[in-house]
Structures are given as structure tokens and as C-alpha cells.
Design a protein around this nucleic acid. Structure first.
Lengths: 124, 124
DNA sequence: AAGCGGTTTCGATGATTGTCGAAACCGAGA
DNA sequence: TCTCGGTTTCGACAATCATCGAAACCGCTT
């Protein structure tokens, strides 16, 4: 892609018929709902930090038991925010023994990133 | 570029000390508020479509009079959503005669895009 | 100056959200 | 089977939000 200097020959439209940079074309209303839900999930300071901790976790996953003490809000509230992230499709959760581990979902992160990528110009 | 001699090839940290991909490092809590506000602004289907219409406008700007009839909600509500986008820093507005034109703010769009860019790996 | 069309502000209202404590759930040991 | 620590769900509440119609504002044009 543009960042690596290698042109992504064709914008890879997905099922919703949408993931081209928004600077190139208007987002179809059918796709706007799903995409807005993901952005909304990132639209809270706590959730944004949670997402960044999950995305940057060494090993690709992180335990709730490591997330909770990193904030000054209650456990149930952290759990609520993680649920919002999960329902938006940005993360997945897996229980192992007593602990639950969260991992990022790179596909959706890429899609949002590309959507905002104003430097990715349309083919000349 | 970077003030120190460290060869930050790609990542250009800004005043908040933050815009590296979230897959690389946790977002500082001081920056989370501002960034979350921008994501929140995009977290509504109407606003996301408005943003995409502004970002993809030929000539780099678009008139409110062209945005309003594209939706089935009232003028005041469109105006409200545009205000939210403006206050988040994603767009700017300029009045010329009776019409108001909105333009995207590429810097913030780039920052958000980079934040989500999971493929941008840290320097080896 | 008076009217007009485009846009924003104001005030109100129903819906959604972030937060908490209490309670329930779930695996692992004892 | 009983308890225990980690996690989620439930129920409640104050705060924020999306939306509307009415009113105000702002430049033209007459």
C-alpha cells in the first residue's frame, strides 16, 4: 500500500461493497451502520486505551486480569467496555481456565484504517 | 522529524506524544480523550456518511446545501452533526455569501488512520 | 429597509450510555 | 461437594445524545 510504497493494485471491496478510503467515495448507507458501530466503540477514552492495550499485547493477547487493574474504574465497567468492543467486531475473547483473554481482530482494524487513509489516492 | 537522534523512520510523534499505531504501544491516557472524541464523532452513521461526503468532495469542499438533501433528517439535525464533526477537529467550515462549505482536516484523518494501521510494524 | 433562502441556535423530549454494587456464573482445587 | 478467585450479568441512576420545530441569524437582492 501507499505506506510501503507498493501500490495495492485494486481496492478490495468486501461484502458490504465498502472499504475504499472515504476520500475516494461516499460510504454507502448500508455499510455506514456497521462501520459507525466500530468507530463508536473506539469513541470512549477507556475503550480506546483498552483497545490499544489489546492490540499491542505481546503474544497477541492479554488477560482481563491485566486490563482491570490498569484503570480506576470497577471490574464490571471494564467488562462492559470489553463487551462493547467485542460486539463491534474489533476484538475476540477466549476463556482459558479462570481467565479470559482478548485479542484484536486485524481485519476490521485494517478496514477502518484504510477508510481514513486520505493518502491512498485513486488509480490514475 | 524526531528531536532525538533516534531514527524514527516512519512514526512521527506529535505534541501529545502519540500517534504511533496502537498495535505498537499503548495510547497514553492524556491523548486518549482527544482521540476518542474524534472516533466518537465518526461513531454515528449519519456523521460517518457526512464525513465521507466531505472527504470525497471534488474540489476539496462541499456545501451544506448539498449535504442536507442527501439525508432524510431535518436541517437542524444535519447542522448539529456537522458541529460535532467540526468540534472534533475532523472538518472545518467556511461561510461564503449565504452558503457554508465544509472541508476535511487531513492531519487528524491521517493520525487516526495510522493509529489503526496494524500493518505498520515497529522499526527493527 | 424589507423580504428571502440558507444555516445555525434554542428548548424540549425520548433514547442511549457510563458507571456502580450486588448477584450470578464458571473453572479449579481442597 | 464446597469454597474461592476471576469474570460477567443484572438493576438502577445520572448524564449525554439524536432528533425535532420554532426562532434567530446572516448575506443577498429588490
Amino acid at each position: 500500500m501507499s505506506k510501503s510504497g507498493q501500490p495495492l493494485a485494486v481496492i478490495d471491496l468486501n461484502a458490504d461493497g465498502c472499504c475504499a478510503p472515504m476520500a475516494q467515495s461516499r460510504i454507502p448507507s448500508e455499510a455506514a451502520g456497521t462501520l459507525a458501530q466500530a468507530f463508536k466503540a473506539l469513541g470512549d477514552p477507556i475503550r480506546l486505551q483498552l483497545m490499544s492495550m489489546i492490540a499491542s499485547a505481546p503474544g497477541g493477547e492479554i488477560c482481563v486480569c491485566e486490563l482491570t487493574p490498569a484503570f480506576e474504574i470497577s471490574g464490571p465497567t471494564i467488562s462492559h467496555h470489553l463487551k462493547v468492543l467485542k460486539e463491534s467486531g474489533l476484538v475476540t475473547a477466549e476463556r482459558r481456565a479462570s481467565w479470559v483473554y482478548y485479542r484484536p481482530q486485524p481485519a476490521l482494524m485494517r478496514r477502518l484504517s484504510l477508510l481514513l487513509d486520505i493518502d491512498n489516492q485513486p488509480p490514475a
